[in-house]
């Protein structure tokens, strides 16, 4: 089975700073692999280990996808090779453009199955995998919590808010997996060393047959929300008297 697993390079959220004008500063930000995508990588490796075949990793974005630590980190988790679509046009691409770039690359690589995470840990739109499947005109579904290969099809378990579904999916297909489909493995020193020797194929948008596709939404601003003013009255202790003080405040508010 030829599996392509998609991942996104995202900012470490804790390092994003808020400027006095409420805009965001990324100057001290380190970039990392989106956490939920690691479950997709693990799912791909488990499938390939079970039925044979090959797993490839794929990401699209601006020059950030070139980060050598991240390239090594994704390959150390098992994929045999890595495809990067690097293009300045993909900087802060919307879901539509991201899905289109992935579709172009996936068609060029060839696939039986594409796996995505449940959402990126920065924007968490949970849209790219779905749009990718529709662009490729293959079966696509999200919230996949278990994958069982069965010949040229997969039996999947899907975990929704209040239902569990068992579905039969014929290949090729695109699936988004949940964050609890598996426990990801930490790569060891051997895997990290081997990762440096694995092939990395780099394309731009032209190479995958895309011209000047524009995003379908324009960002006007990204601002930290205005703080709601709070009283910030703090009682420093839980003695009977102090709890009684809290009770008094609650009573006054609930009147």
């Amino acid at each position: 089975m030829k599996v392509i697993v998609c991942y996104k390079v995202v900012p470490e959220e804790l390092k994003i700073e808020v400027n006095p004008d409420r805009s965001l500063s990324f100057k001290n930000v380190e970039w990392k692999l989106s956490q939920y995508d690691l479950n997709a990588v693990e799912a791909a490796m488990q499938l390939v280990e079970a039925v044979g075949g090959k797993a490839s990793a794929l990401t699209v974005g601006d020059q950030k996808v070139e980060n050598s630590k991240l390239k090594k980190s994704i390959l150390a988790r098992g994929p045999e090779d890595l495809y990067l679509v690097k293009d300045e046009q993909l900087k802060e691409a919307d879901t539509n453009l991201t899905a289109a770039a992935l579709a172009g690359a996936v068609m060029k690589i060839g696939f039986d199955l594409v796996l995505c995470g449940e959402g990126s840990s920065d924007l968490y739109a949970q849209q790219v995998g779905i749009q990718l499947g529709e662009l490729l005109k293959v079966p696509v579904i999200n919230a996949v919590s278990k994958i069982t290969p069965d010949g040229d099809r997969l039996i999947i378990e899907r975990s929704l808010e209040d239902e569990i579904e068992i579905l039969e999916v014929s290949l090729p297909a695109v699936l988004s997996v949940t964050a609890d489909i598996n426990v990801t493995r930490l790569p060891g020193m051997k895997e990290i060393l081997a990762a440096g020797k694995k092939p990395v194929i780099e394309w731009d948008l032209n190479k995958i047959g895309m011209g000047h596709d524009l995003p379908k939404v324009e960002t006007i601003s990204t601002l930290a929300p205005e703080q709601v003013e709070r009283n910030k009255i703090l009682i420093e202790g839980d003695s009977e008297l102090q709890i009684a003080e809290l009770v008094e405040y609650i009573r006054r508010e609930l009147k």
């Binding site: 949970q126 849209q127 779905i130 499947g133 696509v140 579904i141």
Partner: peptide, 23 residues
Amino acid sequence: ASKRTKVVAGRLAAILGASVITN
């Protein structure tokens, strides 16, 4: 914003050439 309707919204976006603004 349920998991089901996110699938429908995403597929509609791809079919109609739109993006989806989520949440």
